[in-house]
Design a protein around this nucleic acid. Sequence first.
DNA 1: CATATTTTTTAGACTAATCTAAATTAATTA
DNA 2: TAATTAATTTAGATTAGTCTAAAAAATATG
Lengths: 217, 217
Amino acid sequence: MLSLTEENYLKAIYHLSGGGVKAVLTNELAEAMSTKAASATDMIKKLAGKSLITYEKYYGVNVTSQGKTAALLVVRKHRLWETFLVQKLGFHWDEVHEVAEQLEHIHSAHLMDKLDEFLGFPKIDPHGDLIPDNKGRIKTQPQVALDQLKSGYHGVIQAVRDSDSNLLKYLDKIGARPGIRIKVLGKEDYDESMEIVIDDKKVFVSKEVSQNILMTI
Amino acid sequence: MLSLTEENYLKAIYHLSGGGVKAVLTNELAEAMSTKAASATDMIKKLAGKSLITYEKYYGVNVTSQGKTAALLVVRKHRLWETFLVQKLGFHWDEVHEVAEQLEHIHSAHLMDKLDEFLGFPKIDPHGDLIPDNKGRIKTQPQVALDQLKSGYHGVIQAVRDSDSNLLKYLDKIGARPGIRIKVLGKEDYDESMEIVIDDKKVFVSKEVSQNILMTI
DNA sequence: CATATTTTTTAGACTAATCTAAATTAATTA
DNA sequence: TAATTAATTTAGATTAGTCTAAAAAATATG
């Protein structure tokens, strides 16, 4: 059984990796956990020893399928508790995070199945995120090209359709890599170019580019 | 804020002391916590340093009113969660303890008030125990003399009416001290003597004795 | 009442998770 | 490509909670 700290690190790795899409660096992880790189290194070794992640010195961390399942079971608990807090206890959506961060570490599969049933087997949580099932599986979201996304919506880059190296270099330059979240600010009717937010930076991309970025929403 | 371990020790002290009625010895506490006396001593010093208990070397521990309040707030959480598990999630009463032991350590007064409201402000939990209010107060239960108790019922010794030293010596001999739980097995119609259980031992007591033992049920 | 036994405390060590500071490796730049 | 800088790892220390073994205090016994 994982300790509370191990679960929190694993969940952070899962999220930082964009759901297992890309590697996570030690400093990224340390910052996400509000701790120091040395502490992150120690925990990385521990989780690698439990086969939840793979670790190559100086090159970062990837979640294994076992680690992904474990992370998704924590995510499931978090999202079911948030749903409970909002739907049954009348919490506002912005009050639930801190408490759900605690509740997600309660160890009882039976409890979560009962809660799931009590809530009517919800598919999404109050923030619109998908709730994984009790085997740690999350419905693979259908991929959508970025140009199909409406203003205000956001998604995570899953893949790039065209493998032209000029496109990939350009995407790399603007920070558009798999696992990265994009928000659509607006679309120009004239040329169908889009203004999007990547890493808190606003960028304009042409229709040719946005057609080639595959996202999950 | 108390750590999970501190909360568990404090709760154990509260219960072993019969709700603050009598002192708790180091070995008792160690056994209740499934740990060693040395560990109990360490934690006792820590809790005494936080003014939750008073501690006199070699003579045991007493909860302060501050400690009592803190313990009762944990008890409140435990009992509200048990009520939730049984009434809302359909748990059986014998499945709830382990999960409630975890849930009672979630830190959020707001959550407990909301849960209390959701459950309709229950006064007792599924085991029939009183639920303390959100200030850590528990309704003082009316005292009842042991001879008024019916078969099958149980209660905790709160005080002894007669201070005759022969009576007290006798009570001490059969293990009937304040804070100790008694269960009534049966009553003889002939002389109104009672068969009771104290510390898993069956004992017969006369009406003269049972009239003088004041209990809370 | 002196000795033996039990209970409790103290001393020192161990693990998990953390930190700082130093050393090492990788990446960047001149 | 050599030197500099940035990222990462290692080494050693710290805290909370635990343990074992030894010392000290209280209690029981002869």
